[in-house]
């Protein structure tokens, strides 16, 4: 048999490979163009940085069957209301600090990173911080020097990462802002700190 089937021929598969690759890539570009605006800062899913002026909670949604972030009453971070630029500057300092201190190589953020330490997606809402009155101070103290704060029977501790007071405030702002992102219910069944007055 000298002629092989067209569907088993090299040229057919070369063309198919090109078309499939091109098609998938174009589809991905289109999806990206649709997604990026939906996750840009200030969108419904990813709130503006000034959201740190408000109470953020994580509540069960009857229609979506998972918990979703809810933005509530005014509750400025560190008791000081910030305008949009100031809020962005603070969160940016925090994000830069998390990158330059390499947080992601112990923790996960939005579930991505390393598994040596707890997920930080909703850490702003963690019951670990005690009450909502002491939370901010607790967080600042912890971030600046966790080395003497062991909270598990294994003795696993976070190292002291030379984080300044201002950087620590940035990190807390970043964590508060991150907890307001709509992550489709991740983490599931999360048990929040008590925030109602």
């Amino acid at each position: 048999m000298a002629t092989s089937q067209w569907w088993a021929s090299e040229s057919f598969w070369r063309k198919t490979a090109i078309w499939v690759t091109g098609g998938s890539f174009i589809a991905l570009i289109l999806l990206t163009m649709d997604t990026i605006p939906q996750i840009s800062t200030g969108s419904k899913r990813v709130p503006a940085y000034s959201v740190i002026n408000y109470r953020i909670s994580y509540k069960f949604d009857e229609t979506r069957h998972v918990q979703v972030p809810v933005i509530g009453a005014k509750e400025p971070l560190f008791g000081k209301e910030l305008n949009e630029e100031e809020a962005e500057a603070l969160v940016k300092l925090g994000k830069l600090t998390t990158q330059s201190k390499n947080c992601m190589n112990c923790h996960t953020l939005l579930g991505n990173g390393a598994y040596y330490a707890p997920d930080l997606t909703k850490s702003w809402l963690d019951q670990y911080w005690g009450t909502k009155e002491v939370r901010e101070v607790q967080m600042l103290e912890f971030i600046k020097d966790p080395s003497d704060k062991v909270h598990n029977s294994m003795g696993r501790r976070m190292p002291k990462l030379e984080i300044t007071d201002e950087e620590a405030r940035g990190v807390v702002a970043f964590l508060k802002w991150m907890s307001s992102i709509d992550t489709n219910g991740f983490p599931y069944n999360f048990k929040s700190i008590e925030q109602e007055n």
Partner: peptide, 13 residues
């Protein structure tokens, strides 16, 4: 399977 056979058909040629 058909692809395996189909692509190898050319081998003898």
């Amino acid at each position: 399977w058909h692809l395996c056979v189909g692509t190898h058909a050319a081998e003898h040629v």
